[in-house]
Design a protein around this nucleic acid. Structure first.
Lengths: 105, 105
DNA sequence: TTTTTAGCTTACATTTCGTAACTTAGTTTA
DNA sequence: TAAACTAAGTTACGAAATGTAAGCTAAAAA
């Protein structure tokens, strides 16, 4: 009785992108590689959820985590090629929002 | 200490689009006007959440609810102009998913 | 007259999320 | 040298969101 006529790749894409914070995190990382604390401060996400999401995005091969062996070590997060390929999606949302979304008081 | 450098319109757009099911519902309604039960069956969402989301999308002026006074009455949901304007976003996600998302077993 | 359908609503259990405090290791300050 | 601080998380726990299932109302079909 339950039909799934929608393409499974598309559904999976939505599952990732709709998971709260993920799109905002990707948007933030489009600015360039960043450290954990920078992301946290700029996005306003809790560390618990941030860690969770970064792990998820890493597993999905959208984000890459790098340990830079300086002293002290710096941990850097950046978009993979797959992650960068999401730029048009974010651009489209940006355009739509500038055209149609208004903020009320 | 918490900075919000991101555009508020964009943030609001993400808030709407990232709310679970919303993007999928919009995608489904891009097919054309549909009744409650049709949406429910095609998307695989529970009625509790479907009602909630349709209300939200109506308030955001993305979806319009129409009562067609036939006998029995038919209730139709369709995208507004603002809703249709999201088509490029969905298209971009579709393209990305066909290029980068793979389904594993 | 009983059953079915559409379009919801309600109650309740499960899952997810946010808040805040804690941890570990190295680092600067006093 | 001890005390305090920072980065990058982890843990515990209460609050909020979600899914499941059952119920409801009005009309229609059997």
């Amino acid at each position: 009785m339950d039909q799934k006529k929608i393409c499974p790749r598309f559904e999976k894409a939505l599952k990732i992108l709709n998971h709260s914070w993920n799109t905002l995190l990707i948007y933030q990382l489009l600015e360039g590689p960043q450290r954990y604390s920078t992301i946290k401060n700029n996005v306003g996400i809790s560390s618990r959820v941030l860690t969770e999401r970064l792990k998820e995005l890493e597993i999905e091969n959208i984000v890459e985590r790098t340990v830079i062996p300086s002293t002290p070590v710096v941990i850097e997060y950046k978009l993979t090629e797959k992650g960068h390929a999401l730029a048009p999606v974010l651009k489209a949302i940006e355009q739509w929002s500038s055209m149609w979304v208004n903020i009320e008081e």
